[in-house]
Simulated assay, not measured.
Amino acid sequence: MAKLTRDQFFAAIAPAVMFVHQEGSFMFPSLRLAQSLLESGGEIHAWNNLGGIKVGSGRTNAYWQGEAVVKGTWEYIDGRSVVSKAAFRAYKSIYHFYKDLDLLLNTARYDRVRQAGTPERQAQMLYACGYATDPAYPSKLTAIIRQYGLLRYDEIAKPVLLPKGFEAASVVPVIYQGQVLGGGYLQGGTTWIPARRVGEALGAKIGWTGSQVTVNGLPQESILSSATGYVRVRDLAGVLGFGVTWDDRARAVLLE
C-alpha cells in the first residue's frame, strides 16, 4: 500500500477499530488507534498485522490460520535496544488482526489492561503486563492520542442499534482489501448491506427508483429502512464483478 498520511491511516483503520469495539472489545478506540500507529509506523502492509503479534505457539484460531511473515524487529533487553528477526502473524484483514489481538488480551496475563478505566491507564498496563519492552511505550501512546485528538473516537463509540426490519439479524463486517467497509446484517442466511456506503466505497454509482436501489443503473432487490437502502451483498458484488467469500469461523464477508 502507498504511504499514508496520518489522517489517511486513521481513516483506513478506524472502521475496523470501531466495529470491534461495538462487538464488545474492552480496548479504548483511542488507545487502539494510537497503538496501531506506533507499532506499524503508519503503514498498512498486506499481512495486516498492526500490533507486532508474533507467531508464538503457532496455535491457530478463528481469526488466524497459521500464515506468517519474517520481519526485523527490536526490543529492549537489559536496558539496551536489540535488533533481531522474528516470525509475525499474517491476517486476512485488519478486522481479523484486532479480533486475534483481543483473544491475547483476554488472557489472565492482561487482567490489569482490561480493568483499566482510562486510555492512559490502559497504556500503562500494557507495558506493566509485558506487552511491550520499551519503557517509554505508555508515554508514546499517550502522546499520539493527544497529538491527533483520538479521544473523540471514545466519545462516539456506542453499541450497534439494529435498523427496523433487521431486529433479528447478526451484524457482520464487510471487508475489502483488508479493511472494513461497513457492517452488514446477516438474516436468514443472507447478508444485506447499506448500498450507498459500501457500493460507493467500491466505486459503484448508487441510485434510487423510489422503490429499489440501483447499482450502476441496474435495479436490485432492496429493503428500505430509516431512509437507507439495503441490498444483498452478492447482488452488489455481482454487478461490480467481485467475488464474495463467507469466513464462517470469523463470521465476516470478504469481497475479492
Rank of each mutant, 00 (worst) to 15 (best):
Arg80Cys: 00
Leu151Ser: 00
Lys3Met: 14
Leu38Cys: 01
Ala62Pro: 00
Ala116Phe: 06
Arg234Thr: 04
Ala86Tyr: 08
Ile156Tyr: 04
Glu23Gln: 13
Ser40Tyr: 01
Gly165Phe: 03
Pro138Lys: 10
Val233Phe: 01
Val83Lys: 07
Val113Ala: 02
Ser84Tyr: 10
Ser211Thr: 12
Phe26Cys: 07
Gly58Trp: 05
Tyr91Thr: 14
Ile53Leu: 12
His96Gln: 00
Lys92Glu: 15
His96Val: 00
Ala132Val: 03
Pro194Thr: 02
Ala12His: 05
Leu38Pro: 03
Cys129Trp: 08
Trp64Arg: 12
Trp192His: 11
Lys158Gly: 10
Ala157Gly: 13
Ala201Phe: 03
Lys158Cys: 12
Glu200Leu: 06
Ala90Gly: 15
Tyr176Trp: 05
Ser84His: 11
Ala14Ile: 08
Lys54Cys: 02
Asp134Lys: 10
Gln122Leu: 02
Thr73Gln: 09
Trp47Ile: 11
Gly72Pro: 03
Leu162Thr: 04
Gln179Cys: 12
Asn106Asp: 10
Leu240Ser: 02
Gln35Met: 07
Arg89Gly: 10
Gly199Arg: 02
Phe26Thr: 09
Thr107Asn: 07
Phe242Gly: 00
Met18Asn: 13
Pro138Cys: 10
Asp248Gly: 05
Arg109Met: 04
Glu43Leu: 11
Ala34His: 09
Ala14Arg: 14
Val70Ile: 11
Ala169Gln: 01
Gly229Trp: 02
Arg251His: 12
Ala157Phe: 13
Met18Arg: 14
Thr107Gln: 08
Pro15Asp: 09
Val83Phe: 06
Glu120Arg: 10
Ala2His: 11
Val55Tyr: 05
Gly79Glu: 04
Glu75Asn: 07
Lys99His: 07
Gly66Thr: 03
Val70Pro: 02
Gly178Trp: 03
Gly188Ile: 05
Leu236Asn: 01
Gly79Met: 01
Gly51Val: 06
Leu38Arg: 03
Ile175Ser: 02
Arg80Leu: 00
Glu39Gly: 01
Ala16Tyr: 05
Val239Lys: 00
Cys129Gln: 12
Lys54Tyr: 03
Val172Gln: 05
Pro173Gly: 11
Gln220Phe: 00
Phe166His: 04
Gly207Thr: 14
Ala34Val: 12
Leu126His: 09
Thr118Leu: 08
Asp134Arg: 10
Tyr76Leu: 02
Tyr148Ala: 02
